[in-house]
Design a protein around this nucleic acid. Structure first.
Length: 593
RNA sequence: GGGGUCGUAGUUCAGUUGGUUAGAACGCCGGCCUGUCACGCCGGAGGUCGCGAGUUCGAGUCUCGUCGGCCCCGCCA
């Protein structure tokens, strides 16, 4: 084994080209592959930046060539050599450095490597568990390394943009207090305060509001947030937000700043310029047309409400649904009348995953509406449906009939599934959409109370002063979400900055004066001491990077992510602790060891 | 808490109605090879079929349980 000594690389493995011919260079990196011809040996040397072919020729340097025979995958090298132009027919257009190669005159083996447990190339899919167990090997793969590079560039673009716009980057505590509402907290026991617990922040929400009250005016932070809920392909227990808050602003200011920031990110990463202003749509319109508050507007297949049209129909399922206060909506799947029985069964099964108890359909033929349920509709009802859906021969109509929430969820998911199957979603399209005018609260039937749709500090729109008169569900909030290709990538609101209003909202949410004082007393007090009007927004970095890199899982843009059971196969966290540690924390275990 | 799916060589996978000695490719080891670039040719090693029960003359294959990966519902203000 050799030492690095005073050898320092002169170039990375992506830098050398025709301009460097005849130069003596020093490269460092890992052995990606060796091609040993008995005589000449070729090694693809890899570092974070790229790949360069290095050559060992016995006629040029017999001793170095002999030494190179032992090289194996993932050995760590430093080499000194001369850049040679490759003969024209031996250039490798697949390599950035493919015009040249480096003929090695000095080889230092800095470390050997056992045969890696999986190949460090893009040609074989490796199981997630193995990848996470050897994440440091997984991250050597250019695809993964490039994801981290792109993430770095995105975050730097954010910092640069916000710095240029008068923002201060300020850190907020990771050890804070648990608050009601929202997700389950990760708790941290306090050693010096037995029986008391910190919570890891679900977001820095209250601290950033306090920073506004402190007069910081414009704050941002690229910050970890923690939520102890079950994982998904786009959800990790710890995730990163671009969190910001501004004083003396309204919705338009936040939207403008956000659009500028997103634009900077896209320019610096993909080289794409998504020119503001982005489209906007009210929550009500999104729910009506797409059945979701984060519609993917890259394709059609919109939902059409047929409740009125079919109010008098004799089809018992529809009639009963409407009589019980439910709704009927439909999607016109254009040109899909040729779907087989199996296609329709598959779609019905898919719909069932989201709560559908069935899925009625009609195939529009030249001469008839082909369906088991056509006979229940009058000519007038058929005409009305034809008009509402713009139905033409060759189309397929899919129905949802249930409570409004169920119909919307089922049909919005069905819409996405149809678009995937019919390949209606254009690639490399980035469709931004602001959703505005959210409801302030929604009724939680399980808890039998109203819950904040966004969070309890979101300001109501102007008539909010009338609370609790009238139907709380009709109140709109000053919240906004940014949706990109059907993914919620950011959300925020103008906050309540007056104590009276905050107390009213707490009351509406069933948080009594006593609980409010105990849990949010510090906020209410701060609101009494000169709180400026303020608002903000937070963007999910991981989800944004998922879209920018085209990844199918959030794990591919996080250096060390967790499995779906929230474990880390690399460190084996979470792990048992010494009994003494628990004792110090005044915790007594009651689980089986 | 629930549903689905997968688990076989280092890796990715195949393995027929339950039936002889569990295969392939890549990788690995050895040999040959001076222009390859996912080099090539020849040879070789490598398996508690996730784990545990059960059914059976016989289980990689069937049943039950269990552990783990992934996807989803619930959950995620």
């Amino acid at each position: 084994m050799d030492t690095l000594g005073s050898l320092r690389r002169t170039h990375t493995c992506s830098q050398l080209g025709a301009d460097n011919v005849d130069q003596e260079v020093i490269l460092t990196g890992w052995v990606l592959r060796r091609r040993d011809h008995g005589g000449v040996i070729f090694i693809d040397l890899r570092d974070r930046w790229g790949i360069t072919q290095i050559v060992f020729n016995p006629e040029y340097n017999a001793a170095v060539h002999a030494k190179a025979h032992q090289l194996r995958s993932e050995w760590v090298l430093a080499v000194r050599g001369t850049v040679f132009r490759r003969p024209p027919d031996m250039e490798n257009p697949k390599l950035q450095t493919g015009a040249i190669e480096v003929l090695v005159s000095e080889l230092r083996i800095l470390n050997a490597s056992e045969t890696p447990p999986f190949p460090i190339d893009e040609y074989m899919e490796v199981s997630d568990n193995l990848r996470l167990q050897y994440r440091y090997l997984d991250l050597r793969r250019p695809e993964m390394a490039n994801n981290l590079v792109l993430r770095h560039r995105a975050v730097q673009a954010v910092r640069s943009f916000l710095n240029d716009n008068g923002f201060l980057e300020i850190e907020t505590p990771m050890l804070t207090r648990s608050t009601p509402e929202g997700a389950r907290d990760y708790l941290v026991p306090s050693r010096v305060n037995p029986g008391r617990f910190y919570a890891l922040p679900q977001s820095p929400q209250l601290f950033k509001q306090l920073l506004m009250i402190a007069g910081m005016d414009r704050y941002y932070q690229i910050v970890k947030c923690f939520r102890d809920e079950d994982l998904r392909a786009d959800r990790q227990p710890e995730f990163t937000q671009i969190d910001m808050e501004l004083s003396f602003v309204d919705e338009e200011d936040i939207i403008t700043i956000s659009e500028g920031m997103i634009r900077a990110v896209f320019r610096e990463t993909l080289g794409i310029d998504p020119a503001p202003p982005f489209h906007r749509m009210s929550y009500d319109e999104a729910m009506r047309r797409f059945g979701t508050d984060r519609p993917d507007t890259r394709f059609g297949l919109e939902l059409v409400d047929l409740t009125e049209v079919l109010g008098g129909c004799t089809f018992n399922v529809f009639k009963t649904t409407i009589d019980n206060g439910g709704i009927i909506k439909a999607i016109n799947a254009r040109g899909c009348a040729g779907f087989s029985r199996k296609d329709l069964d598959d779609l019905t099964d898919y719909a069932a995953r989201f709560g559908a108890r069935g899925m009625a359909w009609i195939k529009i033929r030249e001469n008839e509406w082909q369906s088991p349920i056509t006979k229940f509709f009058s000519d007038q009802e058929i005409d009305s449906m034809r008009e509402a859906l713009a139905a033409e021969p060759g189309d397929l109509i899919l129905f949802g009939a249930d409570r409004e929430a169920v119909v919307n969820q089922v049909l919005s998911e069905l819409r996405l599934e149809l678009a995937r199957r019919l390949q209606l979603i254009p690639a490399d399209t980035y469709d931004f959409l602001w959703i505005t005018d959210f409801p302030l609260v929604e009724y939680d039937s399980a808890e039998k109370r109203y819950a904040a749709l966004h969070h309890p500090f979101t300001a109501p729109q102007e008539n909010g002063g009338d609370i609790p008169a009238g139907d709380p569900a009709r109140l709109r909030s000053r919240a906004y979400d940014l949706v990109l290709n059907g993914n919620e990538i950011g959300g925020g609101s103008i906050r309540i900055h007056q104590k009276d209003m905050q107390e009213k909202i707490f009351a509406l949410l069933g948080i009594g004066p006593e609980e409010a004082r105990e849990k949010f007393g510090f906020l209410l007090r701060a609101l009494e001491l000169g709180a400026p009007p303020h608002g903000g927004i937070a963007f999910g970095v991981d989800r944004l990077m998922m879209i920018l890199t085209g990844s199918s899982s959030i794990r591919d843009v996080i250096a060390f992510p967790k499995t779906q059971k929230a474990t880390c196969p690399l460190t084996d966290a979470p792990a048992p602790v010494e009994r003494k540690q628990l004792t110090e924390l005044s915790l007594r275990p009651d689980w089986k060891e």
